[in-house]
Amino acid sequence: MSTRWYPIYQKGGPQLRVFLPNFWLKLIKPTTEQPANIVQFSCSMQMTKFDIKNYLEKIYNVNVVDVRTRIAMGKTKPDPGKGYIVKEEDEKIAYITLPKGEVFKFPDLFANEMKPEEERDKALKEAKEGHNKFLEKNKNRPSLPGWFNI
């Protein structure tokens, strides 16, 4: 079931089918070290273990051996500005076991990220180029304002 409303299921009735599921699933980096064939997900609170298994198998073509879920309680802490106590949302976390021999490693998404110096140089270069272009355009029309254009 997705979070939508469906008619009640009674014995002998037709099987309930979800045509447009609106569940979301996030693959998250495990905080503690896990075996190589275990993948950690954060999912919609309404999802059951069966939902997660079917979701991954039917939509993503991932073979799932086992699903375990837990609900992580959101942190309670004082609001940074106001000081009153606020609680973060609870989230459901699912641990998926892949079949024996299959391995998943969470990729390093920021490996080929630009360094701050490179970024700064790039921005400076772009600004210089823009300025040169502007000068080039206004070379033959002195004393005209920069916004004057056709």
Partner: peptide, 27 residues
């Protein structure tokens, strides 16, 4: 429409995953 829904669903999951990872890595 049915096919497009699943494309969008996958796209949203992908974006949520990337957003979460960026948040964790303070990017």
């Amino acid at each position: 429409l049915h096919k497009l829904w699943y494309v969008l669903l996958k796209e949203r999951n992908m974006l949520l995953t990337m957003e979460e990872e960026c948040k964790k890595e303070t990017r």
